[in-house]
């Protein structure tokens, strides 16, 4: 009996001491955090993707509170995952307002599928685009195209990007994509662009990243942009297209979705995404090959021998 009593007392005393220690430790080392940070954090998606440019959602919440106190506005801060609704909630908590931002989406600017861009050699090494980039050009003759090893897939927190086993290209699931930009950062060739989603998700994109001269680009890929500049002429009215380093680029802000460039492109490198299919009797005057103009990135127009314009 006595020993039980002793044990109970001893343990009790130890417990008491430990409790006291914990109490004082929690007082002494307490971190006073602005309670708004917690509130803001609570409405954030908690994906900790880093798409906002801060280390995780807590970091972003801290930055929002700091910006409110110091600048008095939330300008330049955006949670790409939550988008407008979340930013409005954040602004509500902090007593701020946010301006509307246009939603964006990741776009893989390469259409060099196995069919379009024949594999010349076989890569046999670690499954990583960054590693393959050290071997040279990769499996194909294109020094700018998609490796298909999925560095972007591994960086995506939302399961919104995958490698299509048939085309061996990265494909974005627009529903899931939050435009956080992790994939764009992971891509060693800068193929992925975070682009405006466009009205009704409709947009015109040059699905190519090849900056080689036309002859080389054309030789190794059927779907490459050769920098011929026909699209630039087709877009004279809106001046949305520019060719730099043998590669055409469509400025989404200026693009009016007229689809003239799509017809003008001799290689079918310009794609109209999420657009309704064209009527069969397309009355486009300068488009003799418009019958099988692609409407989605994965259907391929017949290759056309381009005239080099360099």
């Amino acid at each position: 009996m006595n020993s039980i009593l002793m044990a109970v007392i001893a343990l009790g005393v130890i417990g008491l001491l430990a409790a006291l220690l914990l109490y004082f430790a929690s007082r002494k080392f307490a971190v006073h955090e602005d309670e708004r940070i917690g509130q803001v954090s609570a409405v954030l998606p908690q994906a900790n993707c880093g798409g906002c440019g801060f280390p995780g959602c807590a970091g972003f919440a801290g930055a929002c509170v700091k910006a409110t106190d110091e600048k008095g506005s939330l300008e330049g801060l955006l949670c790409p995952v939550g988008g407008q609704p979340v930013m409005e909630q954040v602004a509500g908590i902090l007593g701020m307002t946010v301006e509307a931002t246009a939603p964006k989406v990741a776009v893989v600017r390469c259409n060099g599928s196995c069919e379009n861009r024949p594999r010349l050699v076989e890569y046999d090494g670690a499954t990583s685009c960054k590693v393959q980039a050290m071997v040279g050009m990769g499996e194909t003759g294109c020094s700018y195209g998609c490796f298909g090893c999925g560095d972007c897939v591994r960086q995506c927190q939302f399961g919104a990007i995958r490698i299509n086993p048939e085309t061996k290209l990265a494909e974005v699931d627009e529903e899931k994509c939050t435009a956080c930009g992790a994939c764009a950062k992971a891509c060693p060739r800068g193929i992925i662009e975070i682009r405006l989603k466009g009205p009704k998700n409709r947009r015109m994109v040059v699905l190519c990243n090849n900056k080689d001269k036309g002859a080389i680009a054309n030789k190794w890929c059927k779907a490459s942009c050769i920098g011929c500049g026909k699209c630039v002429k087709a877009c004279e009215k809106f001046e949305a297209i520019t060719v730099t380093k043998n590669l055409a680029y469509i400025d989404a802000e200026k693009c009016k979705l007229c689809r003239k460039c799509e017809e003008a492109c001799p290689k079918g490198a310009i794609h109209a995404i999420n657009m309704p299919p064209r009527k069969p009797k397309a009355d486009a005057p300068a488009a003799p090959k418009a019958e099988n103009t692609p409407t989605t990135p994965n259907t391929q127009s017949s290759p056309i021998t381009p005239k080099e314009q360099q």
Partner: peptide, 12 residues
């Protein structure tokens, strides 16, 4: 394992 593939990437 493809040790050196990854180490090269890390090193560069």
């Amino acid at each position: 394992r493809t040790l050196l593939d990854h180490i090269r990437l890390g090193k560069s």
